[in-house]
Design a protein around this nucleic acid. Structure first.
Length: 640
DNA sequence: CTTAGGG
DNA sequence: CCCTAAG
């Protein structure tokens, strides 16, 4: 089920939350259990709970999700959701409830959107008002249109699988340029591989755009093409993408510098706090999209780029007036001084000596280059107890016993950190034995004990920004306040092995760190947006502030997380927007990763350039990793 | 405890 | 994400 469909369902009904309002909600409680081969039921491990719990706080804001099929998938595996009263009806119940709940969490989205960033206010739990401004005529229209588009547009998988559909989309683009005779003034017939971000620059009323321009805007927004020719749909999608909200007006929205400004100025996206960004945009955009790195004027030598990307950034920081043609050494010294000096960590030292013995060719002088090497070493340490050859894929497995059965399970996914599978009946009957503190928290907040947090918790339903498209399980939320306890699951993950996990698992056992690794939570679009806005407000480095004010509702994001994510965003904005990559996912065009919308990356880039400029010059941002790669621009044969 | 950086 | 160093 796609988001817009759900949303429309809610729009037409507009009363999807009624049952929630009057509190007559049927307190159906789902419990997660594992079904064994003999039909016995076994309580979940903590891991499984965690997997499910993840969807508690994740909220859907991505344009496309696969739900229905996954729900079915979910039941084909060894986990299922049981309706507490009589789990025999679990299946049908889930389906109906699934719809209800999706509607509901759609409403929760609204809560989230309406929520002031400081999170200090109590938000009314219903937001039916939100949809009132939508003309009724449009609602019906939308319903039809959306269904239509769902089938005409490239399959949903393309949303999640950008690279694989690249070819197809290109052909689509070709045929489109033939079929579509509409003349877009600024959009050339040639579908360049680089999205035309300029379509969103300045003040553009989406209503005035042609279909093709809308498509281009869509592309600039989502980083992928679309063949949808429906204006309404396109406008809504673009607006949704730019506002990161499902609640958008179908018309009357004006794009102003990548952000949606509604005509009635009723709401406006959080802006980069008062910072004049127009000119920066102009320069940075042009440079990256059109000129490319190799075309910066005052940088004639190629070695300049190859040497340090931070130099480029520092130059950009200084604006157009890069009269600062200092030598590399000078710049590096400058930045080296700005950087906090730090002596190697113990672990690092250990690794150094370790690799020294293992591999004399290890470059001790350049620790940064040793990353790949280190990973290899880690992998080599994996010593699976057993290996089971299944379908030509060899998974490291270990033996485990489920209720008397001895089976092989993937090594990584069977870190049983949960309770033993005893006392199953009481598990169903008693209060949900919440072991994970996060789940505990979520449940508590949903129970309404903490009035301030109730809405936050229920509004924190979002689809991860990047998830494994091919093997994602269902995720339908059942967030209820009345003791409802949410279970969704990503079943397939149970059967798949993330190499990373193997490494981690092994590393943990090796190092005997009993500490539980924090449950991985993919960053969602809205989280990223919040982060970006936070940085815009408080500046980079004020992570605790950002966390307190912008991430009050996301208890699981620490300031370190924010910092890390920002670092990644910087890298992404560096890599993903560079002309060489043609906007394609850098990492082997990994299909499982939904690229961060270019619009957001642009903001990141702007901030990265703006902030240090405001502060001191030497505080240039250091880009690492791909920076040298990204900097190795090819020819200066610019773009049209 | 917070931030910065390397892993 | 984790870990550690430095404030």
């Amino acid at each position: 089920m796609e988001v817009e469909t759900l949303q429309d369902a809610e729009e037409t009904k507009n009363g999807g939350n009624d049952f929630e309002e009057n509190g007559s909600l049927d307190p159906v409680v789902y419990q997660l259990v594992r079904v064994e081969g003999d039909g016995t039921l076994v309580p979940p491990t903590e891991d499984e709970v965690l997997q499910i719990e993840q969807f508690l706080d994740d909220k859907v804001d991505l344009p496309s999700i696969d739900d229905v099929g996954n729900v079915e998938d979910f039941f084909t595996n060894d986990c299922m959701l049981l309706k507490e009263p009589d789990f025999e009806e679990g299946y049908s119940e889930l389906e109906t409830n699934g719809e209800i709940h999706t509607q509901q969490f759609d409403a929760d989205l609204e809560v989230d959107r309406l929520k002031p960033s400081d999170d200090s206010l109590d938000i009314p739990s219903k937001c039916t008002v939100v949809h009132d401004h939508k003309p009724d005529t449009e609602q019906g229209d939308n319903n039809i249109v959306h269904q239509d588009n769902a089938s005409t547009e490239t399959p949903k998988s393309t949303v999640l699988n950008d690279s694989c559909s690249a070819e197809k989309e290109k052909t689509d683009a070709c045929s489109r340029s033939v079929n579509n005779s509409s003349t877009g003034p600024s959009v050339s017939g040639v579908t360049s591989s680089v999205p035309d971000f300029s379509i969103l620059r300045g003040e553009v009323c989406l209503d005035n755009l042609t279909i093709r321009e809308l498509q281009e805007a869509f592309r600039a927004t989502f980083g992928r093409e679309t063949t949808v020719k429906d204006k309404l749909w396109l406008k809504r999608r673009i607006t949704m993408g730019l506002t990161n909200s499902c609640d958008v007006q179908s018309s009357g929205c004006v794009v102003k510098d990548y952000k949606i400004v509604c005509k009635d100025a009723k709401y406006e996206l959080p802006t980069i706090g008062g910072i004049p960004k127009a000119e920066v945009e102009a320069t940075s955009l042009v440079r990256y999209q059109v000129l490319g790195p190799g075309n910066e004027r005052d940088t004639p030598s190629c070695s300049y780029y190859r040497s340090e990307d931070q130099q480029r950034s520092s130059n950009r920081l200084k604006g157009v007036s890069t009269d600062n043609d200092e030598s590399e050494g000078t710049l590096q010294d400058e930045q080296g001084a700005a950087k906090r000096l730090r002596k190697p960590t113990k672990r690092y030292i250990e690794e150094l000596s370790d690799t020294e013995t293992l591999d004399s060719t290890g470059k001790l002088s350049s620790p940064g280059k040793r990353v790949a090497h280190g990973e290899v070493l880690l992998r080599q340490r994996v010593t699976p107890l057993q290996e089971v050859d299944s379908l030509s894929i060899t998974y490291p497995t270990r033996k485990d016993t489920f209720g008397g059965f001895s089976v092989h399970v993937p090594y990584a996914s069977r870190m049983r950190r949960g309770r033993p599978r005893r006392n199953f009946i009481s598990f169903l009957d008693d209060d949900p034995p919440v072991e994970c503190p996060e789940v505990q928290m979520a449940v508590e907040t949903m129970l309404g004990k903490d009035g301030e947090h109730v809405n936050h918790a229920s509004s924190a339903v979002e689809v991860p920004l990047s998830k494994n498209a091919e093997k994602k399980g269902g995720h339908i939320e059942t967030a209820e306040k009345k003791g409802g306890h949410i279970e969704t699951a990503d079943n397939k993950e149970i059967h798949s092995i993330e190499p990373e996990d193997i490494c981690r698992t092994d590393a943990k056992t090796k190092t005997k760190r009993g500490l539980k690794r924090k449950h991985h939570r993919a960053w969602t679009l809205s989280e990223v947006l919040k982060l970006v806005d936070g940085v815009a407000q408080f500046g980079p480095g004020k992570w605790s502030e950002i966390r307190r004010l912008s991430f009050a509702s996301y208890s699981y994001r620490t300031s370190v997380d924010l910092k890390d994510k920002w670092r990644n965003l910087l890298r992404a904005s560096q890599t993903q927007l560079s002309p060489e990559n043609d906007g394609v996912c850098p990492r082997k065009s990994n299909p499982s990763i939904i690229p961060i919308p270019p619009a957001i990356l642009l903001r990141v880039k702007e901030l990265a350039e703006l902030q240090p400029q405001a502060g001191n010059l030497a505080a240039a941002i250091k880009f690492s990793g791909q920076s040298s790669k990204a900097a190795q621009g090819r020819g200066s044969s610019g773009f049209p």
